[in-house]
Write a protein that binds this DNA or RNA. Structure first.
Length: 278
DNA sequence: CTCAGTGTTCAGTG
DNA sequence: TCACTGAACACTGA
């Protein structure tokens, strides 16, 4: 689930069900991978009895502010999500509008109960997500290592141009680099480059000023739009490459009938439209 | 059975 | 130092 817009949806869910409440019960899965350094037992101890003061996000990371430190941080990996009872997880794919209302869901890593009767669960199917404890999350790795967050602190056009001029990496690779732009993942990088009409194989310092300005604007607008519709993919504009990029069939075309190509860049599948991005 | 995948990290190489 | 590649991580679903 997780690029910036989906993670922001998760943060808002936490805000709705957890902020202002006290955690009265905690259950952690036995999973030394997802619970990395902290371990389920330490995590449970840090959370039980605490009051949640705020839910923060930077890039793809979320953390809680509690009335006592350390605080928990959450990263979803490729398959993580927050759930609450009654929050229908809309399976937006194709025609299967299945809502799974089984509670609790499968692949639960942590389950929290609150003093008002509410519940919050984090699932992580493929165990690439991480749950950590930090005394000061924004000022400690990994969150302190992140670059700008396009929703929170997008650089000015001038500053953005400076950042690009100093980098020789492929622009696609740079967009995926979390220490450059936090929260951008594979489909957002492709979407932004398509809309900005930039060849993903170009090097960052080779971009012209008009290209740089288009890139910055699209980075902002794509993410703002995705967040505005609460990461509901079926509500993304029909003109977005997003809807047509999946499944690398050679006949894939955009809404405007442009031919979509698939190549591998920076180790990731890259969908792009050569006739538009040059 | 095989393989790709909305992510990150690390070793090896140039 | 920078940057790229590929592998690893772990596991589902097509």
């Amino acid at each position: 689930m997780p690029e910036l817009p989906e993670v922001e949806r998760g943060r808002r869910l936490v805000e709705r069900v957890a902020v202002g409440r006290t955690i009265v019960k905690v259950r952690c899965a036995r999973d030394s991978i997802v619970f990395e350094d902290a371990g389920p037992a330490r995590m449970r101890k840090a959370l039980l009895g605490r009051r949640v003061l705020a839910a923060r996000r930077r890039g793809k990371h979320i953390w809680f502010e509690l009335d006592k430190r350390p605080w928990p941080t959450f990263h979803f990996g490729m398959t993580g999500a927050f759930h609450t009872p009654g929050t229908k997880q809309l399976k937006l794919a194709s025609s299967s509008l299945r809502t799974d209302d089984t509670w609790p869901p499968r692949f639960v890593k942590i389950h929290l109960w609150f003093d008002d009767g509410g519940e919050l669960v984090m699932t992580n199917k493929r165990r690439l997500g991480r749950l950590r404890l930090r005394d000061d999350p924004p000022n400690e790795p990994p969150i302190s290592e992140l670059g700008f967050d396009p929703l929170l602190d997008l650089p000015s056009p001038k500053r953005f141009a400076e950042l690009l001029s100093r980098r020789s990496a492929l622009i696609k690779a740079l967009l995926l680099d979390q220490s450059f732009a936090a929260g951008v993942g594979n489909w957002i990088a492709d979407e932004v480059l398509y809309q900005a009409r930039i060849d993903p194989r170009k090097r960052a310092h080779e971009l012209s000023r008009p290209e740089i300005d288009r890139l910055r604007r699209r980075l902002k607008s794509v993410i703002e739009k995705a967040v505005a519709v609460d990461a509901r993919k079926d509500r993304f504009p029909k003109t977005w490459l997003f809807h047509y990029r999946w499944g690398k069939n050679s006949e894939a075309v955009t809404a405007r009938g442009e031919k979509i190509e698939h190549i591998t860049l920076a180790g990731r599948t890259t969908a792009w439209v050569p006739e538009v991005q040059r």
